[in-house]
Design a protein around this nucleic acid. Structure first.
Lengths: 228, 228
DNA sequence: ATTATAAGTGAACATCCGTTCGTCGTCAAA
DNA sequence: TTTGACGACGAACGGATGTTCACTTATAAT
């Protein structure tokens, strides 16, 4: 990321691209493709559009998602444009979900099971934080201690999980490692019979275990670090 | 059969799809793909997603563009969902708060100020996450990149802040460090004229700066790592 | 029970679309 | 003149993505 620039310091092409993108999003509700941008601004090559899009990222006007169709969004207002109809924010008023807050997650033992807790503690969350999946078996745990720090989870954080015993690649899961006698939160990647458990913090090294030595206890839906 | 319907007459899947789409757009700035919708809502076949998307078009909630990736947009706000919606969902005991979601935090520049961003996105949070303080000037930022990793904050996390220029000992604050030309999130401790900025991750060392070289931009109320 | 309709599945397909690479022209600095 | 940075071109590649179809399952009406 380089230094942000002013709109006027951009090339004519780049200005046109920005304006076109803003109009396109307003009109369609989703961003244009590289080829559409090129067509609209008189650029014959997709790579040139790509090149200038990256320039706009450097200039601080744009954010892109790698290898994602239409994966871009404007992050800075353009000057001198009346966007009267721009903010068509559609607000869903969602119902809250009350999630049971079970005890603590500690490194030295598996997750608690459902019925062994009578703690009536619960917190309210929005469906946004549950990933919009079926939430009937979601629950929450408060993290005690710094043992999850390699998962970027601190003491006092609240982890919202869904009980399940399998996982897909890329899921963050709570796993019980019988060999080590500890519970941990890691990203899950299966490679045949080996399972790689990748910490969220890239400064830590992954753990590799056999499938038999890796009991998935739940999938992490989200993490909350509450106001203190 | 193409008559507009009420939100509650939709199937559970279709409701989940709608809500997922809205949050996805809020988070990414562009709509999801058919496959992403399926993954998020537990639908194994793209054709079923396609099928239900067309149902949502018939019901008047959605517009689609033929053969266009991510070619969809929400065109109808949802009425309040009432409490007879089954499952565990309940009404908020306190009012939900809709917090503006401004652009992004980047290490290389100060927090954006209110009026230089066209903020049209917002997320719903519970008062629990705002620390039950006055929420009129709370706002949210999406974290881009791993530059906040020493604050235990990852790429994609959402930070909820309150605009303020002072801080008390122990607060987590967003500070602009003019000497370094970067914004960072740290715990704030004042020691006379020196200010110690302590990372949330104890493995990182604190920064010490003079009060003049430390511009507090806001206090961090909470951090959300949304479901992905 | 039978039938009709809606909903879901899994696979195949064609195309869309972002990425990459070698090449070229321009312009300013050395 | 040479060099290098910048902008641009066009083609090719491969993965992403919407569409379609034959088939199955679930639900409800007759």
């Amino acid at each position: 990321m380089k230094s942000p620039k002013e709109f006027n310091s951009l090339s004519k092409r780049q200005k046109n691209m920005l304006v076109y993108m803003e109009d396109y999003v307003t009109l369609h509700g989703y961003p244009p493709t590289i080829r559409e941008i090129g067509e609209a601004t008189g650029i014959n090559s997709t790579s040139v559009v790509n090149y200038n899009l990256n320039k706009l990222v450097d200039a601080g006007f744009l954010e892109r998602s790698d290898r994602v169709s239409r994966g871009m969004r404007l992050i800075k207002a353009l000057p001198n444009r009346d966007k009267k109809s721009a903010s068509k924010t559609i607000q869903f008023t969602e119902a809250a979900v009350r999630v049971q807050l079970y005890g603590q997650i500690v490194a030295g033992q598996p997750l608690p099971v459902y019925n062994d807790i009578n703690a009536q503690d619960s917190i309210e969350v929005t469906p946004f934080m549950l990933g919009h999946v079926d939430t009937t078996d979601a629950f929450a745990l408060r993290v005690k201690g710094d043992s999850m720090i390699d998962a970027l989870i601190a003491d006092g954080d609240i982890v919202i999980l869904r009980k399940q015993e399998t996982a897909n690649n890329g899921d963050m899961v709570a796993v019980w490692l019988p060999e080590r006698g500890e519970t941990t939160l890691k990203y899950f990647y299966r490679d045949g019979e080996r399972i790689r458990l990748q910490p969220a913090n890239p400064q830590f090294v992954p753990i590799e275990v056999s499938a038999a030595q890796c009991e998935v206890q739940g999938k992490v839906l989200s993490v909350i670090r509450p106001a203190r």
